[in-house]
Simulated assay, not measured.
Amino acid sequence: MAYLRSAGLGALVARSVLGWVRQDPRAGELRRTNFRGRSVTLAGGPALAAGATAGAAAGAPTARLAAAAVTAGAVSGAVGFYDDVAGNRPEQKSAKGFAGHLGALREGFVTSGLVKIAGVGAAGLAASALIGSRRTGRLGRTTDVLLGAGVIAGTANLINLLDLRPGRALKAGAIIGAPLAVGRHASMTAGALGAGAALLPDDLGEEIMLGDAGANSLGALLGVALVARSGTAGRATALAALAALTAASEKVSFTKVINDTPWLRTLDELGRRPQ
């Protein structure tokens, strides 16, 4: 029952926020052009962030885990939304990648991308500290918290890296979340995935775009669910995998890999509007 309740709440909040943002007088400022030249709205980002965060928090078995979900989901969504809006300004577009943001900082200019990176990292650290560690020694607890922070921020970044085609980020989130939606703390994941499922038709139909707000929030919440049920070895393994994927993204195009792999291409195109 708790599983279905958190999933339903996530879906309800996501749909409600999407409708509210679309009706806002300033909704036109969220219009963007997607990869196919269609005009879509970034309203899907705050809708997913709000729904996934509410659903995950409702499914948390303890107050500390609920606080971790709210911290990771809400802060990652907020700084992501800031980057979605501010990053579209001409003076922000020149800084690309982490190196570009650091280069701008050395020149005395704080980019919206750097604000997002710092915000997601801080949210991951705070959420991981709230989750804590089963180890008793100070060094062991500190190590677990730092590993957990890396997993939460790394998962947020991975989902964001995949948000380049309609539905791709939500499908990736569902695949990552599937094993987390079974067993201990499953209701937390169900809440986040329920929000994603509610927005998937609009995403596939190229009516909305998740942007950094939606992708970062969903990824961070999946990271929280993973950290909450993992010990030191599990967190270290997950962080190593995330680091490897992030490093690979600097060398190869995920879109090219997907397009060149038949079964991945079929999954990626499933439900999408025909070209």
Rank of each mutant, 00 (worst) to 15 (best):
A178Y: 05
L161P: 13
R168M: 07
G177R: 02
A172E: 13
I152G: 03
V151W: 05
A198Q: 07
A172F: 11
A186F: 01
A181E: 14
V151G: 05
L170T: 03
G150D: 06
P166Q: 05
L170E: 01
G173I: 12
R184I: 05
A178G: 01
M188C: 09
D163Q: 04
M188D: 07
D202Q: 14
G196I: 00
P166N: 05
D163P: 05
L170D: 00
L161D: 10
A172C: 15
G183H: 02
T189M: 11
K171Q: 13
G150I: 13
P201Y: 05
I176G: 00
G167I: 12
A192R: 07
L158H: 12
K171E: 08
G191A: 09
L193M: 10
L193D: 03
I176T: 15
H185K: 02
M188F: 12
P166C: 07
R184T: 14
N157W: 04
I175H: 00
D203F: 06
L162M: 13
G194N: 04
G183W: 14
L180I: 07
G183Q: 08
I152V: 11
A197V: 07
T155N: 11
A156N: 01
L158W: 15
G167R: 10
A178L: 15
D163Y: 04
D203N: 06
L170Y: 01
I152H: 01
L200H: 02
T189R: 05
L158Q: 13
A156L: 06
A192M: 04
D163I: 02
A172W: 14
D163N: 11
G167W: 08
S187Y: 02
T155I: 01
D202C: 04
R165H: 15
D203H: 02
A178F: 08
R184F: 12
N160S: 01
I176R: 02
A197W: 07
P166I: 05
G167M: 06
A186R: 15
A149F: 15
A174D: 08
L170M: 14
A195S: 03
V182K: 14
L199M: 06
N160W: 10
A174K: 08
L200M: 14
G173N: 13
G191F: 11
A174L: 15
A172D: 06
G191I: 07
D202Y: 14
A174R: 15
A153W: 07
A195N: 10
S187L: 00
M188Y: 09
A192K: 07
R184N: 04
A197I: 04
I152A: 02
T155V: 12
A192D: 03
G154V: 09
L180G: 09
A156Y: 01
L193I: 09
G150F: 13
P166V: 08
G154Q: 11
L162Y: 03
A156T: 03
A181L: 07
